[in-house]
Amino acid sequence: MDEAIIWLTILALSIFVGIEVISKVSSTLHTPLMSGTNAIHGIILIGAIFVAGTADSAPVLVMGLAATVLAAVNLVGGFVVTDRMLKMFSAPNKKTPGKAPAKKDGAA
């Protein structure tokens, strides 16, 4: 029983932390935030690796490997695409592409 209570404690505290850390986010960042949290649950990858690594039969191994591929897509793709989005937010005015006019300073 003790162990179950420990798990419940972790669960309860994590819920509050999860709510607390994003409670003040502006709608501007909703898309990257959704994409970023999406990447974090890709950590199921370690569960998939564990399953594949302890597989005792061929079908289980195949399922574990399939889960590993899918989870890796989620994890890596999620972080890469979030970074791509945020890169545009953080440095929008640093460099000017060749085609754009050099007038943007007047716009501020």
């Binding site: 798990w7 972790i10 669960l11 994590s14 819920i15 509050f16 932390v17 999860g18 709510i19 850390v21 994003i22 409670s23 986010v25 909703h30 935030l33 959704m34 949290t37 999406n38 974090i40 649950h41 950590i43 199921i44 370690i46 569960g47 564990f50």
Partner: peptide, 19 residues
């Protein structure tokens, strides 16, 4: 029996629900 999955999943579940 993996604490990290529990914490990470719950974080996403809670923040995702709020979002």
């Amino acid at each position: 029996g993996n604490v990290l999955l529990l914490i990470a999943g719950t974080l996403v579940g809670a923040s995702g629900t709020l979002l």
